[in-house]
Design a protein around this nucleic acid. Structure first.
Length: 338
DNA sequence: ACCTGTCAAGTCTGG
DNA sequence: CCAGACTTGACAGGT
């Protein structure tokens, strides 16, 4: 099984390469000339896109093929007071350039809309803004020219609202009502407080979307399910959610589908088990990979460590040291065979 | 140059 | 019903 490692958004190694530069709404609204203010937002977005391309080149230079874009590429993009603003004429070229590079280098990229995108909310106005947030992310992938088979938006199920079962059912119901354009883009990830891996998987299966297993979230929110049971009972089903490439309605030939993806991070400390540590302690991840090694030919691991790319390269250093008797082979700067 | 409170957005808890 | 925590990178305004 080939394991590729990736990281999230920013680099701790490149200087002056922020991919999340922004402007507060208060600052925006203070500018007298609204047109000029919008041009300023567009210039910030262009800078974020240029830096994203720099990040991708940095990835390629170090064999990294898995990368998650920042969600903050276009500042204030989904703000209610800016509904009339279309930033794309100014950004089309920059997005196309990023997308062309992704395709040329065959990178696997994604977005992770954050906790404001809650598709299982009981509040209509929150659902509406969640769909707007989804539209924002999907539109960026489309502007990059990346198809739904390869470029996804990963989200969580959402809140429990005092009745987790009903909340899960509401996700399935409200997801089913979404435009096909969004459905084919979504992957679902278990979270660290509410929806466990088992619960998330059931919802992902009903919705026909791939599931991203976060093994750190599972460790702190396992719902009483042992690590063994995850490997034996859950993993084969999780792997199956990836076989159609996402969405039973939009499923295509398996050859076009993505390898399963998991998230890995280490707890910050014994007292603070949920927060992410600076680096990844490889023991837990290696044991998990070892146990599922026969199940799929490829898997991608998104590292969610505070030190981002630096943590990935530190991990690879560590893996090179353990290679001899670790039961795996280091393939290149960002992948192993296990 | 550096530090601190704040940021558009949601949910949960505790008062 | 409302304030504060949660969480994150970066801004904004101060020294």
């Amino acid at each position: 099984m080939i394991v590729r490692f990736g990281f999230v958004a920013m680099s701790m190694m490149l200087q002056n390469a922020s991919v999340s530069r922004t402007m507060t709404y208060q600052q925006f609204s203070r500018l007298a000339d609204r047109g000029a203010a919008l041009r300023k937002l567009e210039r910030i977005a262009l800078e974020n896109l240029e830096h994203s391309l720099r990040l991708l080149k940095h990835c390629v230079a170090h064999d990294v093929q898995v990368y998650r874009f920042s969600s903050k590429l276009i500042p204030l993009a989904t703000h209610g007071e800016l509904n009339d603003w279309d930033p794309y004429p100014a950004l089309e070229e920059a997005f196309a350039k990023v997308g062309a590079y992704v395709r040329e280098k065959k990178l696997r990229v994604s977005f992770h809309p954050d906790h404001f995108c809650v598709l299982n909310t009981p509040r209509p106005e929150v659902l509406e803004s969640s769909v707007r947030d989804l539209e924002y992310h999907v539109r960026m992938l489309e502007a990059m020219g990346l198809g739904e088979r390869t470029a996804k938006c990963n989200i969580h199920v959402g809140g429990a609202y005092g009745d987790k079962e009903a909340a899960g059912e509401r996700f399935v119901r409200q997801f089913a009502e979404l435009n096909e354009r969004y459905k084919g883009r979504i992957t679902l990830e278990n979270d660290d407080k509410t929806f466990t891996a088992e619960e998330t998987l059931a919802i992902a299966e009903l919705s026909g979307v791939p599931m991203v297993l976060d093994i750190h979230h599972h460790a702190v929110n396992d719902g009483g399910l042992s690590q063994n049971a995850v490997v034996r009972e859950l993993w084969p089903r999780i792997a199956r959610t990836w076989e159609t490439g996402g969405g039973s309605l939009s499923g295509g030939p398996a050859a076009e589908s993505l390898p399963p993806k998991i998230h890995a991070s280490s707890p910050r400390s014994e007292k603070d088990m949920r927060s992410h540590a600076d680096l990844l302690e490889p023991g837990h991840l290696l044991r998990f990979l070892q146990e599922i090694a026969g199940s799929v030919p490829r898997i991608d691991v998104m590292l969610e460590a505070k030190q981002k790319d630096a943590a990935l390269f530190q991990l690879m250093d560590e893996l090179r040291k353990r290679e001899r008797d670790g039961g795996f082979r280091v393939v290149d700067g960002a992948s192993i065979e296990i």
